[in-house]
């Protein structure tokens, strides 16, 4: 289990190798990578700046990761989130979930992303070619994405 919040880019292959090195209990590794889109609402963007809440961010990511380990038999996991100014095409976030079998790894990776997006204190600001910049609004679809995990954890009786 590990979380990192840092400005520099990550190397997905190197992160997987580091996570699985010397391990023979892992049979499935699922990764998700989020990248910067070059347009928002049909308008091109020139950069995206990520602000965060130092201390709380790491604490929330660790809580989200611990929750995933409670729900699925994970062998290893990693969350890396970049901060600062990024360009279209740049990596933003990496989630890796490793387990003995694929279902746990697939589900945990999706859960980690849904929870991260709803709980981790990051805020995106997009700059446009005319020099204006605006904060990205939270999306209803992200709230819905995290709520389906609540339903699953508390089935109707």
């Amino acid at each position: 289990m590990a979380v990192r919040v840092e400005p520099q880019d990550f190397d997905i292959g190197a992160e997987i190798a580091s996570l699985t090195s010397g391990r023979t209990d892992i049979g499935a590794v699922v990764t998700f990578t989020g990248t910067v889109r070059g347009a928002a609402g049909g308008q091109p963007i020139t950069s995206m700046t990520l602000e965060h809440y130092p201390g709380m961010t790491e604490a929330e990511l660790a809580r989200v990761e611990a929750e995933a380990h409670d729900r699925w038999p994970l062998s290893a996991s990693l969350i890396v989130h970049r901060i600062g100014e990024l360009r279209p095409g740049d990596n933003i976030v990496l989630v890796i979930a490793a387990s003995a079998h694929r279902h746990a790894a697939f589900e945990a990776a999706e859960f980690l992303m849904d929870y991260l997006k709803s709980r981790a204190p990051f805020w995106k600001k997009e700059a446009r070619p005319d020099g204006n910049a605006s904060w990205v609004d939270a999306r209803e679809s992200d709230t819905a994405a995290v709520e389906r995990w609540h339903k699953r954890s508390a089935p109707k009786v």
Partner: peptide, 10 residues
């Protein structure tokens, strides 16, 4: 105590 908009990471 911190105040902020709804989060938009990921």
């Amino acid at each position: 105590i911190a105040f902020f908009p709804p989060v938009t990471g990921g």
